[in-house]
Design a protein around this nucleic acid. Sequence first.
DNA 1: AAAACATATTGACAAGCTTCAATATGTGTG
DNA 2: CACACATATTGAAGCTTGTCAATATGTTTT
Lengths: 101, 101
Amino acid sequence: MELTNKQITVIFKALCDENRVQIFRLLQNGEKCACKLLEAMQCTQPTLSHHMKILCDSGLVVGRKEGKWMYYSISPEGTEKAVNVLRELTKVSDSGECCCK
Amino acid sequence: MELTNKQITVIFKALCDENRVQIFRLLQNGEKCACKLLEAMQCTQPTLSHHMKILCDSGLVVGRKEGKWMYYSISPEGTEKAVNVLRELTKVSDSGECCCK
DNA sequence: AAAACATATTGACAAGCTTCAATATGTGTG
DNA sequence: CACACATATTGAAGCTTGTCAATATGTTTT
């Protein structure tokens, strides 16, 4: 299953913002509801909602709705996939020399 | 050695742009000089230079100067570190439940 | 059904990023 | 030393992203 360059950028955009990195740290000890995340973060509710959308789009985080609450957690499948993508993309085959040498 | 949130974003910004993802693909089969990369990419020389700077800043790519040529390659140390950072940041400890539950 | 609550969406503005033309720096060559 | 060449830097334009106030949507409670 090959990903396009575009799809790859979507995954890693999750980690391109300090606030979103902070959200990962908050989610490390398990699922958290949006209200708890909002308490811990220093931003408004719409801003948090925006970041959570980007995180979910990346596949690294999954959301689960329960009544009026929204629970977010780190996706083991998503993160495993991200690690594999990173590994693949940075794997060196070294099958040749550059002509300029 | 703990990284700040900011430092983590610097690493993954390397992979937030389609062109830079493309550059990784070009570097996968070994070190390449800037002129070869420029040939393969569809951008101007200053733009490539800018992307290479971001890639080097991330630590995922290293540059080596030889005469008037600049050779770039994927850094095994940098990529290993990035994988570890990604693993650490997305590791779930699951040491508690959210209060809202 | 209305009120209270949690989260999402919209629209606007500011900050940051990508891109290029022009120019600068540094290296080898005649 | 002057010229050609490879790459880097600067400055400006356009696009994208992050942020917030205001508002909308959907859920529970009274």
